[in-house]
């Protein structure tokens, strides 16, 4: 008889979620497609003026990625809740917070990472200056896990309710304001040729804090949501 060590459990769960995502890879493509469509629509709405597009490109890409993530976040626990896997996870002898951390990591890898990969494409569609590209990628690399972590807490809270896409957006918006401000701030500074490390550092600090706290909050929220 052997108790499962935490590292083994983490690996098993991460592997399961990645394999599942791979078997349903069509779902990975959806947020990417959505982001592509939204970003393509912007020039049609605002006109093909190069200077204007250059000015807004960074913000549009950030916003597009955020919206696409919001779309995908709703499904973070949905499948597990419906087939009972979530109960099995909560009842397992493992501490819940790191387990949920693994789920969030898998979710980030399968939804946000593809978005970051196509972000340069979206940015060049909108003529973002090449000089701002490193700032964009760095901002996305820090901001998207932050959104995933914060979003996971809220998704856990809504896990016990009926379909709740709009509610999730309403709840997530206030939490996203600071993330958006600092990510966009870094981009704006980079575009103007100013130093942009300060807002990036703020994002990094917030991410470090969220990596520790968000899984714990997520576990607490999930226990509330399942207590019915």
């Amino acid at each position: 008889m052997s108790r499962a060590p935490l590292s083994r459990a983490c690996a098993a769960l991460l592997r399961r979620d990645l394999v599942l995502a791979w078997r349903q890879r069509g779902d990975i493509a959806l947020p990417v497609l959505y982001a592509l469509i939204v970003a393509t629509l912007f020039p049609f709405a605002l006109g093909p003026d190069l200077a204007l597009l250059q000015r807004i490109a960074g913000g549009v890409v950030l916003l597009t990625v955020l919206l696409a993530m919001l779309l995908a976040l709703d499904g973070l626990f949905r499948g597990d809740l419906e087939d009972g896997s979530l109960e099995q996870l909560v009842l397992s002898p493992q501490p819940l917070a790191p387990m949920l951390g693994m789920k969030i990591l898998a979710h980030w890898l399968t939804t946000a990472l593809p978005l970051i990969v196509i972000a340069p494409l979206l940015a060049s569609l909108l003529h973002l200056p090449a000089a701002a590209m490193p700032a964009l990628l760095l901002a996305l690399l820090l901001a998207t896990p932050l959104v995933s972590l914060l979003g996971a807490v809220l998704v856990a809270l809504t896990a016990g309710t009926r379909r709740s896409g709009m509610l999730l957006a309403l709840m997530l918006l206030p939490l996203c304001v600071p993330v958006m401000i600092f990510a966009a701030g870094a981009l704006a500074a980079a575009q103007q040729g100013l130093p942009w490390t300060a807002p990036i550092a703020w994002l990094g600090a917030a991410l470090a804090l969220a990596v520790v706290l968000a899984p714990l909050a997520c576990a607490a929220a999930l226990r509330i949501a399942l207590d019915a």
Binding site: L154, L157, T158, L167, M171, A221, A225, D227
Partner: peptide, 25 residues
């Protein structure tokens, strides 16, 4: 958000706990 989450639950006490958590966040 708090009001919306509270009313999204069928069990009102559970809704209150979830929405209270959101209020603390």
């Amino acid at each position: 958000g708090v009001i919306g989450l509270y009313h999204a639950f069928e069990d009102r006490r559970q809704g209150a706990r979830a929405a209270g958590f959101l209020a603390i966040v």
